[in-house]
Design a binder for these strands. Sequence first.
DNA 1: CTAATTTCAGTTTAACTGATATCA
DNA 2: CTGATATCAGTTTAACTGAAATTA
Lengths: 164, 164
Amino acid sequence: MLVRMENAERDGADEDSTCEAGRLAALPSRLLARAAAISGRIVGDGLAAAGSHRYQYAVLATLAEFGPASQADLARRTGLDRSDMVPTIATLEAAGLVARAVDATDRRRNIVSLTGPGTARLAELDALVDRLQAEATAPLDADEATRLVALLGRLVRHHGGRWR
Amino acid sequence: MLVRMENAERDGADEDSTCEAGRLAALPSRLLARAAAISGRIVGDGLAAAGSHRYQYAVLATLAEFGPASQADLARRTGLDRSDMVPTIATLEAAGLVARAVDATDRRRNIVSLTGPGTARLAELDALVDRLQAEATAPLDADEATRLVALLGRLVRHHGGRWR
DNA sequence: CTAATTTCAGTTTAACTGATATCA
DNA sequence: CTGATATCAGTTTAACTGAAATTA
């Protein structure tokens, strides 16, 4: 399989000695790693500047979409580790953005739910994240970004749909 | 900008409670992170099983393409950190795959060059890496993988062409 | 003097592991 | 009993930082 880029589709930036170049730069795994690092930094910094964190955003967005859930369910739905869930929920609860209550029907579980302030906060963060995603996928237009998402989605789903 | 996936282009895998789902799963930054994690694990494990490492492969491939170079030049061309270069080169030298010699015209520099065994080893690793890239980009066909690489290449080049 | 190179020692951070207590 | 949950403490690893010694 040959998936290297040769010289097609350059974006204007010439190679220089302070920038990696060559066959290596066209390997899918390396491009994925760099694109992930770039987008991760943009989204992480943007959320941090707004006083949040991608773990928090993942929890809030998942609660809004699926409704109240135990921490274990949230971990599965967000892809976060169960142990990283604990301080994330604690921070959100301290900020009044979620409520945590022992499940009366299964007292092992905490039922986590969005509060009113949490819903409002999520609306702000949704708008912010939309801008950050657009920044992260620049210079692709909306159509190209959609194609990228479709390709990545198929790749990720093919490889088991889970992290480990 | 709306770059979410809705329900189009599913790959056969239905959502279940042990797999993250929802809007979140269609965010470019998250898909990039997961695709990078998947391909990084495939390539890293594959190289490890062959007794190598992606840092070593990056150095060998860059030496083959650009010829002998100082460690600082190799760091710039590969995108590796100058400090991670040191043990990488040391390991390659100990295995006889590269030679390291003080540059007579600038005694701060080590000139690193491929040895015969290094060239042979690179040929093996090139074949291995090609297989691993194909595995990492499955289930995309060659054409789709090329499109993915083109999109990622434009994204990465737009964001400065460097890691930091 | 400043600036580049190699090297080392240590930091940071996300992601993860293992163990414990609790409960179904 | 097994198995799920919430929690905590600690590990791992890549990526990075800062500084020393050397040389241009």
